[in-house]
Design a protein around this nucleic acid. Structure first.
Lengths: 134, 134
DNA sequence: TTAGGTGCAAACAATTTGCCGTGTT
DNA sequence: AACACGGCAAATTGTTTGCACCTAA
């Protein structure tokens, strides 16, 4: 009752992602596939990208919405997968990493962001107390 | 002619950001300030957050839109500030970083993302040829 | 006075969802 | 035949913008 079936569109979308290194947006995938699949719809692209990501077959990169930080010196963050909260970490910012990558690639590196993720302290507590009360 | 003036709202928004470590969204800032500033508008919050960010007084965190990657083993990325393109980097993923942060903080760390940014090779080329032709 | 700032609402952009017909099993 | 899937369009959500009025300098 909860099984997945074969779906031409899904495999198409997956293949597209496997064959590129462009880290496309949903819109890009849609535009690429549209010419050969005229009645593909953008909604389907979104649905399948989300599905594939939730299965771990592909990866999604981004915060769902923008966040702002009053602390402008570079520092690392932790983002909770459960509640979405973002915390500062006091891990030292490694400027030498920037130089390293700048030297190793053909890009001009200005800086980097290091974002850890997982389950935050608060959500762990909450989970514990939920288990207790059930 | 291009000078900024004092603006109560802007300073309010800035202060709010300086006094929290919650990395709020625009909406959160708006909700926090609304009770004491009933006729503050969400548009103003967005405008000022963007302005403050462009001046470097605050930092913005996020990709403008979601991007998808067919490569699911953890690796680093480079994002071009100019054209928005995202490239893979073959910098080794440091799993020990996760353990380190897991031990040092009260959060349960599942992984991290390391995203460099700057000007990509292609955009550097483009800039060069623009200068030549002008 | 004058240019920048604000509120408000409309416009835009990105993403999700409901409905209903279609395709896979 | 059952039910997951896809197309389409409407609905949501996040963000920007135009315009008339307001306010600091």
């Amino acid at each position: 009752m909860n099984g997945k079936r074969y779906s031409r569109q899904r495999e198409l979308i997956y293949q597209t992602l496997m064959e590129t290194s462009e880290h496309p947006t949903a819109e890009m995938v849609y535009q690429w596939l549209k010419p050969t699949n005229p009645n593909l719809s953008l909604g389907t692209v979104y649905r399948n990208l989300n599905l594939l990501a939730s299965e771990g077959r592909i990866t999604r990169m981004a915060f769902p919405v923008e966040r702002y930080d009053g602390n402008t010196d570079p520092h690392c963050h932790f983002r909770c997968d459960v509640c979405g909260a973002v915390y500062d970490l006091d891990l030292p910012y490694c400027r030498d990493l920037d130089e390293k990558v700048d030297g190793a690639s053909r890009h001009k590196v200005e800086g980097h962001e290091l974002i850890f993720h997982g389950q935050c302290a608060r959500c762990q507590e909450e989970e514990k107390s939920l288990k207790k009360s059930s």
